[in-house]
Amino acid sequence: MANNSGDKELVRSANMRSIYDKKRRVSDTILNGLIHLSTGFALTIVLVILGYIAFRGVPELDFGYFINQTSILKNTVGILPNIINTLYMIVLTLLIAVPIGVGGAIYLNEYADGGRFVDLVSFTTEVLSGIPSIVYGLFGYLFFGIFMGLSYSILTGALTLAIMVLPLISRNTQVALDNVPNSYREAALGIGSTKWYMIRTVLLPSAIPGILTGIILAMGRVVAESAALIFTAGAVAKLPSSFFGHITTSGATLTIQLYFEMAKGNFDIAFVIAVVLMVIVLTLNFLARWISMRFDVNRIK
């Protein structure tokens, strides 16, 4: 009880202080300093990297790179095939991963009745997101490339990446659905909406910013990925000869090309690719922010 009366004493003395007697706490000052320091540090690193890439890459930028493919016969150097391959890779990966990821998340959150199954899937998702991407590459190469006979192709790469970004998409969708107030569900069901109608008209519009954020993060992963693609999508940098046929041909994305150019010691073109990649990634990030604000139905305009 002695302890208790001591606490009361403290409370009483706190009550006697004026509200203007702001106490300086040393721990607060130190913590504050540390936070500022580490923020500054992180920011500096980002700026140094961006600055260096811009410094090395921007002077090399030449419009020719963006409209040509590298060809010894025509004596041209360019990354247009890689840009196209990257676009193919993004679109194809999302076409596979978004319906499965978003659909699966809707099922898990709104239909499956809790319990073991949902736990198991969540656990698997977490494990999947922790696997190094080269392991996905190995699996994709053996399963899609060899076993399913798709060999080195953009499709093989996209299937592999789809598995890789699936957790990202489904996780974000689940969180977004979780954040939709239950009262919306009750309101809709309470006036006779079916579950699916409720999901379509109330849940998805409310959750769309979160879902889109997940999709854009997934796009970022696709753009940035190299390890999972080298042995699945392959190394060819040729312009497509047919729109759909291109899917089944080998195609190196920008990131893969960057890797090859580095390996060959072509640092000029490597930095050009790096600049392009940076611009894409930054754009995607800003897009993610803009979208989550623009489509937020819960914000009153």
Partner: peptide, 12 residues
Amino acid sequence: GMVFQQPNPFPM
């Protein structure tokens, strides 16, 4: 039909 304790209009 049902009206709930907390007003719950949809965000529309």
